[in-house]
Amino acid sequence: MAKLFPKSANKLPVQIIVYLCVVGCIATAAAQYYMTPKYTRVGYAPMQPVPYSHAKHVGELGLDCRYCHSTIDTAGAAIPTSQTCMNCHNQLKAASPALAVIRESYQTGNPVPWVHVHVMPSFVYFDHSIHVNRGIGCVECHGKVSEMDVVTQVKPMSMGFCLDCHRAPELHVREKADVFNLDSGTIAATQGIEAARTFVKDWNIKPPVSCSGCHR
């Protein structure tokens, strides 16, 4: 009887196993790289209805974050009302076509359809005020907004990202006066890690690391 399979077929099972291993490795690497928030979310910069630029208003005019995000240190963060814009734009660039949407909203009272950039899932409890009042600057989670023309997500906002800081707050805390200053450095960077440890101890900063702290 003629041989049904060539001799090399003996090696085939091994070759197939090796091949599947290689494919498995590639698939794992790809999932690690592409299926995490570091890839899916970082860089999200939606089209906004008004070409509002933080680089102009914060970087150039030097407005404080709280002028517009005025509830940030007491309640949650909120996008400012159109009246906040009209404080200045009733006199500056009052006829600019770029601001037509704002003027219409101011007159009718309907909201401006801003697109949310950062959104937490409903099963996570997050509050700005505790972070802001305990020495965590905006820049830790939002990057240099003061240099962005369009707000872009720069941090993954994944559970690992939150925990990295909650486990080692001394690397991230800064002086209370620097929280809203995006160009300031952390205490660890400017005064050394020992000063930061003392700060964390003096202020009794104990971020939650147990599940129920954030999933409540």
């Binding site: 592409y34 570091k38 890839y39 899916t40 970082v42 860089g43 999200y44 910069a45 939606p46 089209m47």
Partner: peptide, 16 residues
């Protein structure tokens, strides 16, 4: 097609 991390995009983020 998927490119590297740190690109800028305007469509809502994909979700697993």
């Amino acid at each position: 097609i998927l490119g590297l991390r740190n690109r800028t995009f305007t469509k809502p983020p994909m979700d697993v």
